[in-house]
Amino acid sequence: MAVNPKYPEADAAAGFDLKAANFMLPVIYLLNANIEALAAKLGEKVETAPEFFHNTPVVIDLSGLPEGVGEAEFPLLVGLLRGYGMIPFGVRGGNPAQNAIAEALDLAILRDSYARKTKTADAATAADPAAVAAVLSATTQSDASPGVATVRRINSGFMLVTRPVRSGQRVYAAGGDLSITAAVSSGAELMADGNIHIYGPLRGRALAGMNGNLDARIFCLDLQAELVSIAGHYRVSEHIPKELRGVPVQIFLDQKILRIEKI
């Protein structure tokens, strides 16, 4: 197994050895998409042995998940594990859509021989929107959701906000696009699994393609953002060129590089 390429004549390569090794790692088997329940259960486990889980790399096994579920919860799960001090570093047993998301989250795709057979290579089937929306709205209920009068959820994914999004508020359009027809203050946070459209100044943060959708875009009439991100590829205001500030722009990924263009 050991690969040990040594080239005594080349100074640059003499600095390291490349070897293969086996590690014992905890694997988290996902059986359903209920992150809330998972969080509670995981919390109990961690409490019994906090030292054991601290800085422990973990692998997420997706083979037990029902078909077509899990795309949207994935970023939340990774955040949850990190919150408990674990280092989620790879997935196995996912379908191509799930693997794409994992890749977008900088997770390794671990090949697994047995688990794949039962799953059909079902590409980009959207998760059951209702179920996903329910789970996500339950997890993002800080002081977001400013009442029914201001936020309208048409069908499942699409979300329309007609009042200003204030500093400290978070709005998450689970499974679809988010449109804002007012200003977004600095300190506010917009998240959407799809595109984000802002018909006003964007002074806060906007994160599109939360579920790893690399084709998501952000459109805004007046870019003054603190941070913009698409599928985890982000840029902070310091790195947004001056000539693009205060003008209408669209933000998208081009070969996984975040680009901001005037419209």
Binding site: D143, A144, S145, P146, R166, S167, G168, S185, G187
Partner: peptide, 16 residues
């Protein structure tokens, strides 16, 4: 900035 934050709380954590 603080007023903006307060407005956010007003629109989400009041009885109305």
């Amino acid at each position: 900035r603080d007023s903006d934050r307060m407005l956010g709380i007003l629109s989400s954590k009041s009885r109305r």
